[in-house]
Amino acid sequence: MENITPQLYALLVFMIVGSVVAIETRNLLSAVISVAAVGFALSVAFLFLGAPDIAITQLVVEVLVLIILIRGTILLDNTAVESHRDTLAVVTSLIFFGLLLGFGAMIFGGRGFPEFGEPVMRVSKVYVHTGLPATYCANIVTAVILDFRAYDTMGEASVLFTSILGAMALLRRDGKRKEEEVVAA
């Protein structure tokens, strides 16, 4: 893991900077592009970590989301975001962010977590060792998501179905019928 750590840190810094730009910029289009940059950097980070499946999915979803978001953004007349700062909100979020960092340092710095690159493989090593003979599937990731945990994938497909159906339902032109139509029905 040592040989790729510098690249990962560079990507991490890039992603954090991108996220901050996305939050702080006034222009909506710049914000969308910054978010997309973070997504693409994440995709590259997955590649460095040796997870091509997730990298591909992240990449294609990022492309699609970028198209939809940019199309949504350029339709707006005014893409500049009005700035109004709520001091109380900023202070509270900073306090909570600090608390989270404190907890994070406590956990990642010491006794809590396994070392980076040496995960607890108690359950997953069985997938690695018996995945091929048990499922005859050469791609172990697919074997896990569509055979060992196919039920979860059905849930994921339902999540997608639900969100698309919900979006279609909310994009109706009129929500309620007119009174005379109700009486006729």
Binding site: G155, E156, S158, A167, D174, G175
Partner: peptide, 20 residues
């Protein structure tokens, strides 16, 4: 978590179902 998301997303859409 997955099924919690299914139920939550469905309820977000249903709360706004009147689209007013």
């Amino acid at each position: 978590y997955v099924f919690l998301e299914v139920a939550s997303i469905a309820s977000y859409a249903l709360v706004a179902f009147g689209v007013g």
